[in-house]
Amino acid sequence: MVIHFTCNGKPVTVDVDGDMRVLDVLRDVLDLTGTKEGCGEGECGACTIILNGKTVNSCLLYAGKLQGAVVETIEGLSGDSAGLHPIQESFLEEGAVQCGFCTPGMVLSTKALLDRHPDPSIKEIETALSGNFCRCTGYGKIMKAVVSSAEKLRDSREDGHQSGTGLGVKRG
């Protein structure tokens, strides 16, 4: 079937079986290999993408569901320039990346969280990342990276005269 959708801000058209996995549409058809496969059954989150503003496992999503949708992948985050997104910066600064296989998914789950909750509690961060498994880091530095990403993004919003709570991270 012919499917039109928006991928990383650009209109895309693909002609694939409706039951193709979106993971394969991205990796094999569009050559966006930053989205990873770790289990193929919705458990590990390595294949996380943002679909219409919400994270989903692209390994469980059928291509037909993309019709008219807006998709963000890791490739869309830093754009074409070498500049990193503040979340990516924080992941590097805090040492939240070891093998890096879980990282694209972690970064996208973080982005989807911070887009909605600029000032998340520790609990909200845990919940938002509970579908992204990491075997290398033990997660502590990932938590720190999310907290510092939130701070960075709030600061940049304030600089842009937008409202931010500026309260820092709530504990709880």
């Binding site: 919705g42 989150g45 994270t55 496992n57 469980l60 789950s109 509970s130 579908g131």
Partner: peptide
């Protein structure tokens, strides 16, 4: 149920 990704889909 599951994770945020699962709950969203």
């Amino acid at each position: 149920i599951g994770s945020p990704q699962i709950r969203n889909a």
